[in-house]
Design a protein around this nucleic acid. Sequence first.
DNA 1: CCGTATCCCCCCCGATACTG
DNA 2: CAGTATCGGGGGGGATACGG
Lengths: 120, 120
Amino acid sequence: MSALEYSPYAAACPSRQLLDRIGDRWSVLTIGTLADGPARYSAIAARVQGVSQKMLTQTLRALERDGLVTRTVFPEIPPHVEYELTDRGRSLREVLKPLEDWATSHMDDVAISRDEYDAR
Amino acid sequence: MSALEYSPYAAACPSRQLLDRIGDRWSVLTIGTLADGPARYSAIAARVQGVSQKMLTQTLRALERDGLVTRTVFPEIPPHVEYELTDRGRSLREVLKPLEDWATSHMDDVAISRDEYDAR
DNA sequence: CCGTATCCCCCCCGATACTG
DNA sequence: CAGTATCGGGGGGGATACGG
């Protein structure tokens, strides 16, 4: 399968795995947090409300594995770890941001639609 | 909470629920399929490979509930049902398409990064 | 401070069978 | 053709405890 033929509509296509990663709620919010610049683990955790330690670590590892985020450890005590978007991560953020904006700007209308639907 | 204050980073914010909906793999692929125009249930199922009957129906109902998709039943035998994006659905598709394109165009690089990471 | 390890519950989702 | 209903397995993810 050549690069031009990647199609997330195909079940076995690796690009679908990528869509899954992107679709993960914590990934989107984590990348969004890092959009403002490098951040420490605890700072990310504070921003992304509701994420558990386990899930945040898991998400960061996955993003690092995909080359979207770098992890820098400062050999200090207490430990100091910083995460930062790579160029690739920033390019992804550029397409994710409009999505985030869409969600916040259409939330009211969607809520109304839901109420109407449920009233039927 | 006013519209301007919606933030998906807040755990209880409804916009996060919307992000979850958007993040769902089947939602993205279903909306993508309908981007070409109205389609019948069976046509969508054929395009979105690997989706089960249950999940497709569930996804379409959710999209309809959110006012992103319309469902039109033609009273014929055998039954004929068409799904179509609403204006809102099309506006969402506009921000989803770049995401889909990003996934296919960066898949090769991501795959390489994963191999390198796993080799460590 | 930044994790890893373990347990365990919930619920998502696929498989299957049935219907208008 | 386009669903609905039901059952059951698997894994995502929370809670907790512990380590460097």
